[in-house]
Each structure stands twice: as structure tokens, then as C-alpha cells.
């Protein structure tokens, strides 16, 4: 029976494709939340395979904080065109203006919290009943406990105590009007699984994932790209370093790592050798409080 076996990446892929098809079958208006990061790029690849030779039967939605890496935006536009999917972009900037939201202050003021408002408004505007996201359970302990089909109330809130038991591979997506489901098809993938899959499938990535020269400032051991979105003080030391990004979020809350890796093989080797976690190394937003992710999820975040 040896011939009828799948390796771990094929098993993960099969599970994720199954989940994508459940979403398409169970919901009337799903959307794929696309950030331009490697996890959502992996989602698009899986969705392509799930519905081939047809097109992906739902739009890509990007909640644009206005603090994105230009490379990620260019990649987003090109990818949407390539797969023939509708691309819906909603800007946090517009929500801030319309709703008179208060922008966070500080050196690396992040719109991470504010994007929840734009996301919920977008869900409301298009009446999305399922939003597919690229969160992984290995990232963080709040994520470790979330379901693959995660039912959110009309405020988008996650209630860990009221989660539905998720048995076998049966996904219960029945919801009441106003509720929606967040679906995480790569829940069971780790960071390294995603990288190995990208390598195996030869998926092109935005250039910032590979080593390049960039002006950065060093803050509490992390390297932050110099941009218009952060406050630069006189005491900051700015230098040009060879860096790459391990995860791609906003320019204000994503840190770079020093690297000379210019190919996928080299990147994967560096990640295998690293002794620091993805979030620990690169996400400034999780450092604020120990329960930062738990709080954001309860507030409607992914």
C-alpha cells in the first residue's frame, strides 16, 4: 500500500482544499481576506487548486491600513489580475475620516486595532457571511484554541467559551442573520510548512521577503523600516542594512531581520535555523501585552 501515501505537505494541502470547498458550498457570500503576506498568498494558491479549472468563486478583500509596503500592494494587484478574482479594497483611512476615529499615537503608531472597524464595515457592506483568513494555530496561544470555522457575532467578536465542537472533518457553518464565520484553512500549518509549500509549489513572493538593502532604525533590538508612517527622533540611529521580512504586516508594526538570503532555499534554511519565533521576531504589536491577540480577537480581529 506504500504507493497510496501522501507526504505531510500533500496531506495539509488536501485538508485545506477540502475546507475551501466547504466554504464555497455552505455560504452564499464568502470572501478571502488578502493581506499580501505569505499566508494569504498560500491561501490563494490553495483556492486556485480547490476550484480548478474554474476561477476562485469569491472576491479577494484587502483591508488597506495605508501603512503597507508598496511591494506588497503591487504584488496584490498583479495576483488578483492573474487569478481573475475580483479585488475589493477598503481603506482604514476612509473609515477614520467618516467615523472620526482617533488614531493611536506614539512612535510606531499602528492602525492594527482600527482596521477592525473597516473590516466589520466591509463585511456589512457586502453582506459577507464567511471571511477566509490565513491565521495559523502555531502563531499564538489564542489562535491555538480557535476553530477552523469560527463563528463570530454581529460585532465580529470571538467568544472562546461558546465555540462549537469541531468533530472529524465536519464543519458546521450554520449561522443566524448578522453573524458571520471566520474560516482558517491553514490552521494546522506551521510557519515552516508554509515556507516549504511555497518552495515546493514555486509560488512567487513579494520582493521584501528576500534580502535587500533598506534604511532601518533599531528599536529595542528590532529593525524597523524608515517610512513616513513612523516618528523618527533625533536620537534614533538610522543605518542601511541588508534585511528581509519574515512576515508582512504594516510598515509600522513589522520588523525586518538581517539576512543575506536571496532565494527561497536560502530563506527556508535561515528560518529552519532561527531560534526566535515569527511573532516574537517580527511583530511589534504582540509585544504590547501578553494577551494582545486574545484581546484583538475578542474585538473582532482575526
Amino acid at each position: 500500500m506504500g504507493e497510496y501515501t501522501l507526504d505531510y505537505l500533500e496531506q495539509l494541502e488536501a485538508e485545506s482544499i477540502y475546507i475551501f470547498r466547504e466554504v464555497a458550498a455552505q455560504f452564499e457570500k464568502p470572501a478571502l481576506l488578502f493581506s499580501g503576506g505569505k499566508d494569504s498568498i498560500t491561501l490563494v494558491q490553495l483556492a486556485k487548486k480547490a476550484f480548478a479549472p474554474g476561477k476562485i468563486p469569491f472576491p479577494l478583500v484587502h483591508i488597506d491600513t495605508g501603512h503597507n509596503f508598496p511591494e506588497a500592494l503591487a504584488y496584490r494587484d498583479a495576483l488578483a489580475k492573474e487569478v481573475g478574482a475580483e479585488l475589493i479594497v477598503r481603506k482604514v483611512e476612509d473609515t477614520i475620516k467618516q467615523k472620526h476615529l482617533t488614531e493611536p499615537k506614539g512612535k510606531f503608531a499602528s492602525r492594527n486595532w482600527l482596521q477592525i472597524h473597516t473590516l466589520l464595515d466591509t463585511i456589512e457592506e457586502f453582506k459577507f457571511d464567511a471571511c477566509i483568513g490565513g491565521a495559523r494555530r502555531d502563531e499564538e496561544k489564542a489562535r491555538a484554541k480557535e476553530r477552523i470555522f469560527s463563528v463570530r457575532d454581529e460585532f465580529g467578536q470571538w467568544e472562546p467559551k461558546l465555540q462549537r465542537p469541531e468533530l472529524w472533518n465536519i464543519y458546521n457553518g450554520r449561522i443566524h442573520k448578522g453573524e458571520n464565520v471566520r474560516v482558517f484553512p491553514i490552521s494546522n500549518w506551521t510557519e515552516l510548512d508554509v515556507w516549504n509549500y511555497i518552495k515546493k509549489e514555486e509560488i512567487p513572493l513579494p520582493s521584501i521577503y528576500f534580502a535587500h538593502e533598506r534604511e532601518v532604525l533599531e528599536h529595542e533590538g528590532q529593525l524597523i523600516a524608515v517610512s513616513d508612517y513612523i516618528t523618527i527622533d533625533e536620537t534614533d540611529v538610522i543605518s542601511t542594512k541588508k534585511v528581509r521580512y519574515r512576515t508582512v504586516g504594516d510598515m509600522t508594526c513589522t520588523a525586518a531581520v538581517e539576512s543575506s538570503a536571496t532565494t527561497l532555499d536560502e530563506v527556508v534554511n535561515e528560518i529552519m535555523a532561527t531560534r526566535i519565533s515569527e511573532r516574537g521576531e517580527t511583530r511589534i504589536d504582540d509585544r504590547v501585552t501578553e494577551a494582545a491577540m486574545e484581546d484583538r480577537k475578542k474585538g473582532g480581529y482575526f
Binding site: Y8, R137, D138, K141, A142, A144, K145, P160, K161, Q163, S187, N188, T190, L192, D193, E290, A291, E294
Partner: peptide, 28 residues
């Protein structure tokens, strides 16, 4: 260690999934 909500109430809410791998296998 679990969620803050669990620590505050001294309970474990739910199944948590953990991941590790060795050169031979991926474990969930």
C-alpha cells in the same frame, strides 16, 4: 499556558492544538 480568560477563571476552556516536528514526522 492558556488564555487570560482561562487563567482568570482557573479553568481550561477548550482543546488547544500544538505543533512540533522531527526529521521523521510532523506532529499535531
Amino acid at each position: 499556558d492558556g488564555l487570560r480568560a482561562e487563567r482568570e477563571q482557573g479553568i481550561t476552556i477548550d482543546v488547544a492544538y500544538r505543533y512540533f516536528s522531527t526529521p521523521k514526522r510532523k506532529f499535531i
